[in-house]
Structures are given as structure tokens and as C-alpha cells.
Design a protein around this nucleic acid. Sequence first.
DNA 1: CGAACTATAGAACACTGTTCGAGAAAGAGC
DNA 2: GCTCTTTCTCGAACAGTGTTCTATAGTTCG
Lengths: 227, 227
Amino acid sequence: MPTGRRPRVTHSLENVVEASIALLDEDGEGALTFRALAARLGGGVGSIYWYVSSKDELLDRATDEVMGRVLAGTDDLVDDSDPIGTLRAVSLAMFDEMVRRPWLGSFLMRNTGVQTNSIRLFERLGQQVMRLDLSPQQRFHAVSSIVSYVVGVAVDMAQPPPKEFFESGLEPAEFLKAYADGWRAYDADEFPFLHQIADEFERHDDADVFRSGLDMLLQGLRVQAGA
Amino acid sequence: MPTGRRPRVTHSLENVVEASIALLDEDGEGALTFRALAARLGGGVGSIYWYVSSKDELLDRATDEVMGRVLAGTDDLVDDSDPIGTLRAVSLAMFDEMVRRPWLGSFLMRNTGVQTNSIRLFERLGQQVMRLDLSPQQRFHAVSSIVSYVVGVAVDMAQPPPKEFFESGLEPAEFLKAYADGWRAYDADEFPFLHQIADEFERHDDADVFRSGLDMLLQGLRVQAGA
DNA sequence: CGAACTATAGAACACTGTTCGAGAAAGAGC
DNA sequence: GCTCTTTCTCGAACAGTGTTCTATAGTTCG
């Protein structure tokens, strides 16, 4: 029984990581500060350092936690009879999670010492590539490239729309149009590609773009494996 | 003639951007602070805000400046008779610059409103893709994917080696080995891929990996274009 | 009960980007 | 020569950050 004063709060690593993820989900990367986190946990700033030795470690732990969920969620996507199909399915699952949590991309693959689940995902992709007729070096290159591509798209999506978006309260579609109009403002003779592409960009879907590039990559892999 | 007191310094946007790039080159992203920048310019902190309205803009300007140099440096790489070869050459030039300046990757493609040269590079890639037999949508997807891949690799390389590297003063090669040993410490049955790959990783060259993935991507593009 | 350990709390520190206002330098008009 | 205006410099001050430190509350265990 507390002796009258406000009772002290008690934390745990799970609590801390969970609250961190919640803050990141709600308001993005900038919302995760030790003070905001402490307030959410109902305690003091210093306490967090009992469980985590720096903000970097906190971010790594949060990232690793959601990567763990991705890993678990892709368990039944593994189909050993179709390695490339599995590569595709797992990559798409990662993409989905990145759509759900745009902050993920910024921290992915930062400190593989702590982010064990990222390594597990790396391994999962690798095991599929092992079923293809490739040299170890080719396998290493293939998985590295897929990861780089996924991370690249992730970074793209991690960028919040400029603040003008929030200020002028435009719909996402309208904002896309405004962006495309920015391209159309360039000189048509000097920038033919920008003009040809503006329409596509205006009605594009991130998932389509992602899938398209992924399929190019996998097609290249297929050719390399001599299928 | 100054009246005895220390004479005032005079700046320019070029000066400011130049000094920023120098700081970034010398000690990385963390070294660029307004105070360090002011000290280097021999003036006060406030003056910088006359030329630039925020640190984000400063970073955008610095990034755009070096992208401009990449753009200029790739002028003579353009070979209209070999679109895919040109895509490859331009991408490799970007990779080279990212090796030289690891901080580049972190800021690439952040604010296309300010980073005009990034758009020009986008256009340069696009014009090559326009020579292939593809739909506008396919072209848009192709260039976006290449850029995502390049940025993904850039981000990989932007990560400074953990501080243990500086502390223990290891050679780069030894550090790579230490990293590979970390992989070998995982259970061999559960992580067959990690083990098969450890040797490759230990003696890998970033440029090889980059080229390999790029070629996969371009091979996929070639197939799509029905060549 | 008392000692040892685990864990919490919040003030204090060093550092960041940014704002602000005072004022110096340089022209423009007369 | 003198003003008035504009352009630009400067550094103190502010709000916010991650991190460190120390006091101390709660718990465990002998």
C-alpha cells in the first residue's frame, strides 16, 4: 500500500519498447523523446536509462520488435517449391509493414548486433536463394540487392509530405496532383520525361511501383539462375 | 578601414554551402552545426540565417550542390545508342560520389523542390528509358526503382562503422572479418545461409555488390522491354 | 531488523536549431 | 557633406534535446 505520496511507477523493457512504438506510430520519428516517453509511462526521464543505454538502442529495440512481428507474420508465406515466389511474398510483407509504419525505413538495418530479427529475415531470404543454382557470391549479392531495394523504397516512404500539406489540408490525391504540377512547370523541351511521367505520377500507387521494381529485380535473378 | 575593432566578415550563399560540404566531408553528418559552421566562416551564428532559413534547407543546398557536380560529371557518359548502358554508367557515377561522401545518401531525394539537380538526374535517367519500348507507366516504374535501389545502397553506406571500430583501431579488412565472425557465431543449422555467406562478406567489395544488383535490375528491365 | 540490491525520479549539464534586436557597412538621393 | 534606407553581421537568449548524476524508495534476503 502506497504511503500516501504518489506511488512510484514500475516499468519493464517490454513496456518501454511498446510505448516507444506507440509514440512512433502516432506522430512519427520526432514524437519519440525521452520526456514524452516518460510522460506516457507516467514516470521520470531517468528511469528509462535503466532499461536502455541510449536513444539509438531504444530505436533499435523498437525496430527489432516490429521486424519480429513481420518475421512471424511471414512464417506461412515460405514455399520451398517456389523460392522466387517466396522472396516476392516476404518482400511484399515488409513493404506492407513499412506502409503501416513509415518510421521503420529510417532505422532498418542500422545495428545488426541488436537487430536480431533483421538478421533472421536476411536469413529467410537467403535460404530461398540457396535453392537457386547460383554461386555463394551471387547469392550474397542477390539478397543484399533485394534488401537495398526494399530499404530504398522504405526511405522514400519515410519522408513525410512537406508541411504545406498539413497546413493547406489537401487530400492526399490533391497533394499528389500539386506535386505533379510542379513537374509540369519545368520546360517541356528540356524535360520531356518529367512531362510524360507527370500523369503517371499523379495517379500512381506506391505498392504498384514497389512491386514493379521488385519484379524487375527478381526477373534479373531468374535470368542469372538460368531458369 | 575598420575602426580598430575586429572587422566584420562577409559571407555569400556559395561560401556557406561550400563550408557546409567541407564540414560534412571532414567529419560526417554530426559535424555540421551552425556554431561549427559559423566558426569556420569566422563569423556569428545568426549570419547564416540570412542566406538559409533552416538547417534542412542548408542540407538540401549542400546535397544539391554535389548532385550538380555528379550531373556535370556524367554529361559525356550519355550514349543514346545504348540506353541501358547509359543508365548503368550514370548509376555507377552516383555510386562513386556516395563512396566519396557517405553523408550524401541520408539527404538524397528529400525535398525535390529545392534539389533541382536531383530532378535533372531523374530526367537524365528517364530520357534513356524513353528510348526503350515501354509504356509510360513502365518507364515511370523503372526509373523510380533504379533510384530506390541506388538510394537504398546509399543508406547502407551512410552508416558509419560502430564506434568500436574507431576505439580498437582495426583495419577495415579486420573489421569486416570481425563482423563476419559475428555471423559465424549464429547456429549453423538454423542459419545455413549466414554461414555460407560469411566468407563472401568478409572479402566483399561494396562496388561489386552494387554493380551486381544494378545489373539484375537492368536485366529485368531489358526483359520487360522485350530485347 | 538491517544490509544489499534493484529500480525510480527529477534536477542539472552540455549541446542543438532558431529567434530576436541592436547595430555596422554600403549606397542612394540631394 | 549629410541623411535615409537597405543589406548584412553578430551574439545573447530561448526552447528543446539526449544524457549524467545523485538521492532515495521499494524489495529481497540473511
